[in-house]
Design a binder for these strands. Structure first.
Lengths: 187, 187
DNA sequence: AATTTCATGTAACCAGTTACATGATTCA
DNA sequence: TGAATCATGTAACTGGTTACATGAAATT
């Protein structure tokens, strides 16, 4: 038996949503179609196989609601090992690679950190995110300085777009850290 | 024979780079590893199949340099239909879906617009990009207003991160439009 | 009566990842 | 001599996309 884990950002999104409340595949699709989580796939060809993989891995458990109909509604809940796996995923340190290639997954992780891990881990996440982002901005600025004269106007502009994104990320992290520190209570 | 086109952002990146100057697969890998284009795959398992697909589609042509060695260096050049396909790709209007899901491809397109299409198309691209981005920001702001009271602190913060990214994109587009309009000459 | 929504799923295909393989050339 | 670099490629696997299929229940 191959050991599978939370194997994609879609799976992470599913796990997080289910941790809030039990949901069927169809419920999940509706969330992905109608809310700001629309960047994740809403296609049944992605969601149902993902649910099956997670269930095979023992991270979620589906219970059939309307038993004797042809297409019974199957509502999924996190198992205890699923909750562990999710918490472990959210606790992972933020790497430079995450910051460069997996911002979407990072934001997804942060979305679920409040309820599942609490204030301390939120701050840890944000500080690591800020640190790695600022470090990468310095790398990009150096590259920009070195290449600004040989790049065309358009390449330079695209490059600057990249830097602007990371700067915006850093400002966001600073703002949220401040907000957390100001208000003692988070809800 | 199935008609293939520029079938991924990696292929678009390859086409654009080759339009500047002829390159081998290994040259491309070096660019993807060592420059700010590192967000694209540098793995040989992605690059070489992509080159083959593009060659099969008649968009690029490989010429062997060191003929009688065992691993001859193969240098690729755009064909005339490849140049057409690239220009057509870059000329495509900017859709809302592009803005939401394919920012990376959009920035890649802009990178190559200068040399291949000129100032008029640059402005067209930027204005469409700005328009679609601002429209989507309004959608997100409405959602934010509607959900701000039911969302947890972390979901709300992640949501705001999303909005911040699009605002930063809009500011960038405005700045570049201004820069273009100020200087008569682009180089 | 007709259309939409609820609800779950499969099958073919596609591009990227990971890991491996080959062997020449250059450099320490 | 041994390591790193040049240079191209394949094979198995993975997860997502597109398109299709089924049929009950609710709505118009």
């Amino acid at each position: 038996m191959t050991i599978r884990n939370i194997d994609s950002t879609l799976s992470l999104a599913i796990m997080g949503l289910i941790s809030y409340q039990s949901m069927s595949g169809y419920d999940l699709r509706k969330v992905f179609i109608s809310t700001a989580m629309r960047q994740f796939s809403a296609s049944p060809g992605a969601i149902y196989p993902a649910l099956r993989r997670l269930e095979e891995a023992g991270l979620i458990k589906g219970e059939i609601e309307k038993k004797n109909t042809l297409r019974p509604r199957k509502v999924y809940t996190l198992t205890s090992s699923g909750l562990d796996a999710l918490k472990e995923n959210l606790s992972q340190p933020v790497s430079q690679d995450d910051v460069i290639w997996r911002t979407d997954a990072l934001m997804l992780r942060f979305t679920f950190i409040c309820e599942l891990l609490g204030k301390e881990k939120m701050l840890k996440f944000l500080e690591e995110f800020l640190g790695e982002t600022e470090a990468y901005i310095k790398v990009l600025e150096k590259e920009h300085e070195a290449l600004r004269k040989v790049m065309s106007f358009c390449s330079r502009s695209s490059f600057e777009h990249g830097i602007a994104v990371y700067r915006s990320n850093a400002r966001w992290a600073k703002r949220i850290i401040e907000e957390i520190q100001k208000q003692g209570e988070i809800k």
